[in-house]
Design a protein around this nucleic acid. Structure first.
Lengths: 336, 336
DNA sequence: TAATAAATTGAGAGCGCTCTCAAAACCTCA
DNA sequence: TGAGGTTTTGAGAGCGCTCTCAATTTATTA
């Protein structure tokens, strides 16, 4: 049976209120008293009851991480473990805990209500939502603090994102610089902002070259390996000489399609992709790709959220993390 | 500002106690009263405050999922996303929520205390712990209900596991049946029970063949791709003709090592592995492997835990899920 | 040293819920 | 109709904490 504040109080000869002050780092405690109480706490290994604190103070030091499971790549794309790890680790460091919601079809009904109204969450991080995901609007309408991972196209919200458009632009430009003229792209799902932004970056690079986009050189994927495979097979008949692929995972599928077709990478087809997932350097050939700080993304989201929770200040936070082109063999250039 | 039981009570003209009964499915409520109250709840979209409930009733409908981050394969092995998904989904279905703890080095200090004493968790699921992980003993000593994913070698605890030894045995036997004599193995980390059990299965198959194990045909990995690569390079000089590899992820590394060495699979080296991860059918060649129900593992753990939480009955639950040999190309047999 | 200000502490209410216990309402049957 | 039983409801305590406010102790100054 866990001990209570009252127990600590009587053990250290002070009142419950004083113990509470010590635990919450209230400066108005005489150093000697603080010491005395801390000693008992340490010795007893005391941990205040979160529920009681939540009820009394209205804060829990728990945040929610919501990932819509509609994201089909959830199980295979290493982005998510990295993100989760980043969030979890940042929370640990700041004495917060994480509740995880892999939201399912039943979504809005129960899940949403729990997230919004159960009162257990100080704030919410939403990742990889679809454009117009109902939860974003719901959070927006409620007064609950929240941060998106991935920018939102029109709502005035807090978010953290990587510079998807610039990354895609740089990868595509890299392919142009290597002399390619027919640069195709395999996009992510266009109902997600990251998918759209990476396509925008591709377009920007085309525009810079004064090249008009060809619809047949653009194939939409959904971030999965299988969709990359399919998209590449769809592109091959149109004979691009290079492809910018919106994720490494899809690039793996594309490589598989090319291998089956007997095409060599980079000689017959140059490839640049996006993510720099852990084994991007171990595919054959290793992928030229855009490195994005997935883990930091999670950490920044947590930091931002906690900041908002602790002082619900006025202006919205927007953080865009920079990305970096990593040149390996799949593009056919050992250096820029 | 979220509404309270009291609000619902006055809106539906009954007392707080009656609303509480309705919410908790207490049979002692007149059907007409129940209806009346339910209607208000539905309309208001009421969600009881978890913290208050926790405080009053001592239950929260929240469970903890603990994964020691020491597990180096955490970020790349699709096993974890699947497991997490299984747990999350089962929780959703049973009206529970999940708190995630990717335990870090600081482990025992803060994290452990929070898990055990914060009072917010009805129970805990621990996955992939090392043998003699301190958290298991701590949970065992505390009275908190918990379930391990992965059996425990000596403690009398609740667990859910797959039949690692039998799976490994079958995979290895399959290689013997195909006529191989020199069957090596790449093991998982031997400080984890799954690593040990799969090695045991390998040994059992050797014994059945009347073959004594050769230390130089056994290489230890740590479940990562890189360790599979390294282990295969270590094994090659000893000229096995087939290898049982304890995870698909390590098999990918092994395939990479073989490819680099110019060896063909399965002609020059047959391979069978374990996990049947989502892209096991898309490696080249596709992997003959043991399919384990990772997602169900999580779901069973949740079910077991909730059962224990709800009636802290006497006997320990042990569930061992069966596994299945999936024959693809890497072993050199299209059928058994 | 007394008077005042500042620092420190404790008493007690209250957060929103559950649960016990007793009261009220409703049945049944003589 | 009324005694006795059963079903349904409500009053109220209390879960462990925070936080306000007043009381007490300590420091400072005239």
């Amino acid at each position: 049976m866990p001990l209570t504040l009252e127990d600590i109080a009587s053990l250290s000869g002070v009142s419950r209120a004083t113990v509470s002050r010590v635990i919450n780092d209230d400066p108005n405690v005489k150093p000697r008293t603080r010491e005395k109480v801390m000693e008992v706490i340490k010795q007893i290994n005391f941990q205040p009851n979160i529920a009681a604190r939540s009820l009394a103070a209205g804060r829990t030091n728990i945040i929610g991480l919501v990932i819509p499971a509609g994201v089909s790549a959830l199980f295979t794309d290493p982005y998510f473990p990295l993100l989760i790890q980043g969030v979890s680790s940042a929370c640990n460091a700041r004495d917060f805990s994480v509740m995880l919601w892999l939201a399912e079809p039943e979504y809005e009904r129960r899940t949403m209500r729990q997230i919004l109204h159960s009162g257990i969450l100080d704030g919410v991080i939403v990742s990889s939502m679809l454009l117009d995901d109902p939860i974003v609007q719901a959070l927006y309408d409620s007064k609950k603090p929240f941060v998106l991972i991935g920018r939102h196209p029109y709502l005035d919200v807090n978010y953290v994102d990587v510079d998807n458009a610039t990354g895609a632009y740089e990868a595509t430009r890299h392919l142009f610089r290597l002399g390619h003229q027919q640069v195709a792209t395999i996009t992510g799902p266009l109902n997600m902002i990251a998918g759209q932004d990476r396509l925008d970056g591709y377009h920007r690079a085309l525009q810079e070259q004064g090249i008009a986009p060809h619809p047949e050189l653009i194939a939409e994927g959904d971030f999965t390996e299988a969709s990359g495979y399919k998209a590449m097979r769809q592109l091959m008949p149109h004979r691009p000489t290079a492809v910018f692929i919106a994720t490494d995972m899809m690039a793996e599928g594309a490589l598989r399609a090319l291998r089956e077709a007997g095409m060599r990478v980079p000689q017959d087809m140059a490839i640049a992709s996006y993510d720099d997932m852990p084994n991007a350097s171990r595919t054959s050939p290793p992928l030229t790709t855009i490195r994005q700080p997935s883990q930091q993304l999670g950490a920044h989201a947590v930091d931002t959220l906690i900041e908002i929770v602790q002082k619900p200040g006025a202006h919205k936070r927007r953080i865009i993390l920079p990305v970096e082109l990593i040149v390996r063999q799949s593009c056919g250039a050992s250096c820029l």
